[in-house]
């Protein structure tokens, strides 16, 4: 316990001083998030799709999801928006940090953590957000409203300290109010079988999930070229 506590404190400082230390952000999330993870698991276990996910434990990586097939999908589908996000941001589902530091929890809880990491990119895609620092922080607020994970709270509260004042103003007057409301009123995004929704129009998925976009906001998927 003492070891976990010191790891939590240490990783919190390292994550705050340098958000690009993704390993430290991840470690912080694992150590502090067990209770929030339990609550996420409970929400999954009380939903039909969530239960199917817990039972089948699908994993999103390049061996289970064919990125080339996604690239061939019509634009404005979820799958196309997702792969375009990966391509533009230069990330891959395989680059997500594997789950460590959770030895004394059960496999299912480890899976919930893994799934949460793997579907994080879909949070960006569905909210139409890129990965600039201010957009990343905005998505953290959305995640906080959705999951209650402490790491999302820390990033959401302390992350803005690193923004300049005009970006911070934009963040707190436009993105955060919208995304917090959106995150708390929309369906729980952990209970979505994204693998089965790739071919659906992203507008339909948003509508089904209860995600709304503010007037005048241009989501990243609207910029996809043929």
């Amino acid at each position: 316990m003492a070891q976990r506590l010191s790891m939590a404190v240490g990783s919190a400082f390292k994550a705050l001083s340098n958000p690009s230390r993704e390993d430290m952000v991840a470690a912080l999330g694992e150590v502090t998030g067990t209770l929030a993870l339990q609550r996420m698991r409970t929400r999954m276990a009380t939903d039909a799709t969530g239960r199917r996910l817990l039972r089948e434990r699908p994993v999103i990586n390049t061996s289970t999801v064919s990125l080339s097939e996604l690239r061939a999908l019509p634009k404005h589908t979820l799958g196309r928006a997702y792969v375009s996000f990966l391509d533009i941001e230069g990330v891959s589902p395989d680059t997500r940090t594997p789950v460590k530091h959770m030895d004394d929890t059960d496999d299912e809880l480890k899976y919930v953590m893994l799934r949460y990491r793997q579907v994080h990119d879909f949070f960006h895609v569905l909210t139409g957000m890129g990965t600039t620092l201010e957009e990343e922080i905005a998505v953290k607020w959305f995640e906080l409203a959705q999951t209650g994970l402490p790491v999302a709270l820390l990033s959401g509260v302390f992350g803005p300290l690193r923004l300049n004042s005009s970006d911070r103003k934009l963040l707190f007057t436009e993105h955060v109010p919208w995304l917090v409301q959106c995150g708390s009123s929309s369906k729980f995004l952990m209970n979505v079988y994204y693998e089965e929704c790739m071919h659906l129009p992203i507008a339909d998925v948003r509508q089904q999930m209860g995600i709304f976009l503010p007037p005048g906001f241009v989501p990243k998927d609207a910029l996809i070229q043929d």
Binding site: T34, Q38, L54, D106, E108, L109
Partner: peptide, 14 residues
């Protein structure tokens, strides 16, 4: 669902 949940009480219950 019942059978699966009963295994979870043991295996997925930190």
């Amino acid at each position: 669902e019942a059978v699966w949940g009963q295994t979870r009480l043991e295996t997925a219950n930190t």
